[in-house]
Computed example of a mutant assay.
Amino acid sequence: MKSAKPTQASVAPATDLLTVLQQRFEKFASRHPKLDWAKVRARLEAAPAKLRTLEQMEATGGEPDVIGQDKKSGEILFADCSPQSPAGRTSLCYDGAALAARKEHKPKNSAQDLAASMGVELLTEEQYRELQQLGEFDTKSSSWLATPAEIRQLGGAIFGDRRFGRVFVYHNGADSYYSGRGFRALLRV
Rank of each mutant, 00 (worst) to 15 (best):
V120L: 04
T139M: 03
R129Y: 00
G88T: 08
T124K: 14
P64R: 03
E58K: 11
C81S: 12
M57A: 14
E58W: 12
S110G: 01
A115S: 04
K71S: 01
E125Y: 11
Q112Y: 04
C93P: 08
C93M: 07
P86C: 04
H105W: 06
M118S: 05
T147K: 11
S110I: 11
E55L: 11
V66Q: 01
Q132S: 14
Q153C: 03
A98Q: 00
D113F: 07
A79G: 11
S142K: 13
M57G: 07
L154W: 11
E75F: 05
M118F: 08
P148M: 13
S73C: 04
A38W: 12
D80L: 15
Q132L: 07
P64V: 09
S73T: 14
K50P: 11
A100C: 03
Y128Q: 02
R152H: 07
A98M: 09
Q69S: 01
E63C: 14
R89Y: 04
E45A: 09
L54G: 10
S142C: 04
S91T: 13
F137C: 14
M118R: 08
E125Q: 03
K39H: 00
A49Y: 07
Q112C: 09
E55A: 15
A79Y: 06
A47F: 10
R89F: 03
I67C: 05
E136V: 15
A116W: 00
R41Q: 10
L145H: 02
E45L: 14
S91M: 06
S117W: 15
D95F: 12
R129G: 03
L77H: 05
M118D: 00
F78C: 01
G88Q: 04
V40F: 08
A46F: 13
E130W: 10
R43K: 14
Q153I: 03
Y128T: 12
K50G: 07
A111H: 08
K103T: 12
S117P: 01
K140F: 05
V120E: 00
P64W: 04
K71E: 00
T90D: 00
L134P: 05
A79N: 10
K72I: 05
V120C: 13
K71T: 09
S141L: 08
K140M: 05
P86V: 04
D113H: 07
Q84F: 05
G74T: 05
F78W: 06
L145I: 09
V120D: 05
G61D: 01
D80Q: 09
T90Y: 03
P107T: 11
L44E: 04
P48V: 15
S73Y: 00
G96Y: 12
L134C: 04
V40E: 00
C93L: 02
A42I: 02
E136I: 15
A115Y: 00
A87M: 01
L134E: 00
S117G: 02
R152Y: 00
G119R: 08
Q56A: 09
C93H: 08
L123Q: 15
W144Q: 10
E126H: 15
G88A: 12
L51K: 02
P83Y: 03
A42E: 06
L154S: 10
F137W: 14
A47S: 06
Q112K: 06
G135F: 05
G62I: 06
P48T: 13
G135K: 07
Q69D: 00
E125H: 08
D113E: 05
E125T: 13
E126R: 15
